[in-house]
Design a protein around this nucleic acid. Sequence first.
DNA 1: AATAAAAATTATATTAACCGAATTTTGTGT
DNA 2: ACACAAAATTCGGTTAATATAATTTTTATT
Lengths: 145, 145
Amino acid sequence: MSAAELSTSMEDYLEAIYILQNENKSARSTDIAEKLNVKKSSVTNALQLLSEKGFINYDKYSEVTLTDKGLKYAFDIYKKHKTIKRFFANILDVDEVVAEDNACRIEHVIDKEVFDKLACFLEFIISSDITSVNIEKFKKECNKN
Amino acid sequence: MSAAELSTSMEDYLEAIYILQNENKSARSTDIAEKLNVKKSSVTNALQLLSEKGFINYDKYSEVTLTDKGLKYAFDIYKKHKTIKRFFANILDVDEVVAEDNACRIEHVIDKEVFDKLACFLEFIISSDITSVNIEKFKKECNKN
DNA sequence: AATAAAAATTATATTAACCGAATTTTGTGT
DNA sequence: ACACAAAATTCGGTTAATATAATTTTTATT
């Protein structure tokens, strides 16, 4: 898992919490379980682990919130998700649902270095004339930082 | 895992066997273990499972070979690996080692539909004038089949 | 305020993937 | 041909991620 701090599975839980909070202002066990297609007992387990590792604030039977560390981590995954999906759907012309699905899995295994390049590539294409994208130019611009 | 027949881990074993056979004309337990950074006991386990599922011909203490089904499966993974790596390294300009590493993980989670589009995209760019790639044209060409 | 329903948790079990140690089989050198 | 080294396997155990069933806590209704 690219030496990430969390497993794919735990990243999914964290991301689900992030998304639910942005939608509802609260992430309940039941909602997380439903979103991830797991049982509530599995969610409780995950919450305990994420709490131990400092990604969420968690007390039994009460509200879950992301810590600063958790928010940052969740946002990074979320951003990967969105960008990868956009690349697949808008550039490669992959079906929306399939793009979503694949992004969901790839977000957990792509390194920052590759992701950053991909994000840059996507922006470059989108901001170019779509009938004449200059890959040479992309390579130069992308390596500025 | 995109409803694949094999887990990431088993796909790794299968791919390792494929690569070793192409290099050496034989894949020994020790070689597989070394390539995948696992212990030989884990390899034996994997071989038993892959054999049960009909991907390899396996008898204790003797030569392992891929079945037709195994060869096809292994080749598909290998092709994904090569193509994804090439996209990362040649187009996104990612470091070779990192590209290799990421391809190794993504090959297990990318669907055929997405992969085919990516492969097509890569070929399209490579065969284009690199200073003027027409994304519109790519989308049309790629969706011919 | 009592209690039923909903939600969350605990406790226990299963499965996949791995490891280490002990054992068995194979094959090599003299 | 035989002893021993190398290779492969078996067996028992660990960990992570899940599930089911039973229990506890919270919440909402009357």
